[in-house]
Write a protein that binds this DNA or RNA. Sequence first.
DNA 1: CAGTTATCTAACCAACTGGTTTCCAATAGG
DNA 2: CCTATTGGAAACCAGTTGGTTAGATAACTG
Lengths: 124, 124
Amino acid sequence: MSSVALGQGPAGARDPLSLVFAALADPTRRAMLTRLRRGPATVAEIGEPFDMTGPAVSKHLRVLERAGLVSRGRVAQSRPATLQAEPMRQVAEWAEEFREFWEKRYDRLDDYLSTMADDPEDRA
Amino acid sequence: MSSVALGQGPAGARDPLSLVFAALADPTRRAMLTRLRRGPATVAEIGEPFDMTGPAVSKHLRVLERAGLVSRGRVAQSRPATLQAEPMRQVAEWAEEFREFWEKRYDRLDDYLSTMADDPEDRA
DNA sequence: CAGTTATCTAACCAACTGGTTTCCAATAGG
DNA sequence: CCTATTGGAAACCAGTTGGTTAGATAACTG
């Protein structure tokens, strides 16, 4: 190799779906989203159930925001967060492509081969 | 504080669902899973589409394995990976709980106000 | 203007991630 | 036994994550 071994794979610049999955890969953030199903809430309200400082809550909300899962508003001093479920639909849609595999029994290899017909590429 | 701020929140010891979401938060790994819908494959086969060394592929497979998304076997020197879609079902199930929110229209501010308006101050 | 409330920014830290290169273990075959 | 093939393990590096504390910003209140 002519070049030195340099930083190749930072996890930073991810595609949209990866951002959503990464945002969901934290129980605190998932709980926050569940909380937001009851309606918009302020940072203090969202963070209340967790033993966590304000900035920590704020950071989690930012991750959710960058993933498109919440939007922020402004009401007086508060910046209420509102659930945006569209990315969740994409998650469900992507997972659904594997439905046949969790519904089927794989005792037989025959089944497995017969169901494999065609499918476009992964679109990340 | 008298004590130093140590070991607060490593991302390591996560719950099962978080492990699954984290595993899916990488386009390479999602592509690997898509590849495995066509049937079990060896490490070399799985890594072939990616410009990546063997150990890197191996690491990705390990992440998928820890998340329960693939199982490994042994055939001669090869250790074929097989898709296990059960965790995917849980992902779909979790996301589905938000269905009403991505089906609903939220153009109305009424919903938003109805949850916040404990004391309807007029502010305009 | 000063103070309170609500939230964010900045700087810092330890642990994890995702890649690399190098080396090791197990299996098939002459 | 020796060798080639297939894959994993160890050590390393740069960048991200998730938390902290301390200070800044914005809007309401007096």
